[in-house]
């Protein structure tokens, strides 16, 4: 105890400790901030434009109403339309580059769940949950943006509100965690 008190009297120790706490806090704030902004994507894909010209969500994410994973479109699917469209923007040149090199596009997932959460799109779509409920209004987004506060409380809250009579099932740990 005395040793600690002696340490506390040294100004350098106080400064060091302060610096340490500041760094921890800064790291945490930075980390939280990182999860709230859209990540850097290989191509600045404009969702707003595609939704605007009438593309349905299910056209590019066909698994959403039939399986656990919505899925990303194959680059072949992008190219199906875009090889007939003039590559005016630099983003489309990038797409052409991926196609030419026969490389998959390394998308960074935005709506991501940890390994221990098993989310299944199909029952949610079947229950009439709109895509925008969880993914935000992508018609107003350029690249996909992460949505705030998507934690377990948020899941359970919705489960309870939408289906109180089925909450035994929908509030069960094993519904998502296995």
């Amino acid at each position: 105890m005395e040793k600690l008190a002696a340490l506390w009297k040294r100004p350098l120790f106080r400064i060091g400790l302060g610096l340490f706490l500041f760094l921890v806090l800064a790291g945490a704030v930075g980390g939280i901030y990182l999860t709230q902004i859209p990540p850097e994507q290989p191509i600045q894909f404009p969702h707003a434009f595609h939704v605007g010209v009438g593309a349905q969500c299910l056209y590019c994410h066909p698994g959403a109403d039939s399986g656990p994973v919505a899925g990303l479109p194959s680059s072949g699917k992008c190219w199906g339309c875009h090889q007939q469209i003039a590559k005016k923007s630099p983003e489309l040149v990038k797409l052409a580059g991926f196609i030419e090199r026969n490389e998959p596009i390394p998308w960074v997932p935005v709506a991501i769940q940890p390994d221990f959460v098993h989310f299944n799109h199909q029952p949610h779509v079947a229950a009439g949950v709109d895509c925008a409920t969880c993914h935000g209004d992508v018609a107003k987004m350029k690249t996909a943006e992460p949505q705030r506060g998507q934690n377990m409380g948020w899941c359970l809250d919705c489960h309870q509100k939408m289906r109180p009579q089925e909450f035994l099932r929908l509030g069960d740990c094993a519904t998502c965690h296995y």
């Binding site: 940890p114 221990f116 035994l168 099932r169 069960d172 740990c173 094993a174 519904t175 965690h177 296995y178």
Partner: peptide, 15 residues
């Protein structure tokens, strides 16, 4: 370590 009322099994929540 808790009981799943839905499936009547014991679940282990790893996280």
């Amino acid at each position: 370590s808790l009981h799943s009322e839905e499936e009547h099994i014991n679940v282990q929540v790893y996280n």
